[in-house]
């Protein structure tokens, strides 16, 4: 119990791959990112509503889930703000 766990990046690799693939194939990443944002927010709304009636233990678990989904959303917003740069960067690399 006293040993700290190795921090593990909770990578949503499919999310990341889809964005990169969309950009590489010339598809609009914004559309995918907007749809993904909606899907994430929907789950966050459901979790937030469920937390209202949850026990303390369950609400801590829900908080854990919310923070992780929020991390994805922050990345989505971050990625949404710079798709043009990503395209340029990838064109150089390819």
């Amino acid at each position: 119990m006293s040993e700290p766990e190795e921090p593990q990046p909770q990578l949503q690799t499919v999310l990341f791959q889809k964005v990169v693939l969309a950009l590489m194939s010339g598809r609009p990443a914004h559309e995918y990112l907007d749809a993904q944002r909606e899907a994430h927010l929907k789950v966050m709304r459901e979790l937030t509503a469920a937390r209202r009636t949850a026990s303390l233990r369950d609400s801590l678990l829900i908080d854990y889930q919310l923070f992780h989904i929020e991390a994805d959303l922050r990345w989505i917003d971050h990625a949404s703000g710079r798709p043009d740069n990503l395209i340029e960067e990838m064109e150089i690399e390819l």
Binding site: T48, L66, R74
Partner: peptide, 21 residues
């Protein structure tokens, strides 16, 4: 996003325009 999750509905503003979800 954690604050927005309390709402019934979310709208995003980008570059001065609302993005329809």
């Amino acid at each position: 996003p954690r604050v927005a999750a309390y709402a019934d509905r979310q709208v995003t503003v980008r570059d001065g325009r609302t993005v329809q979800p």
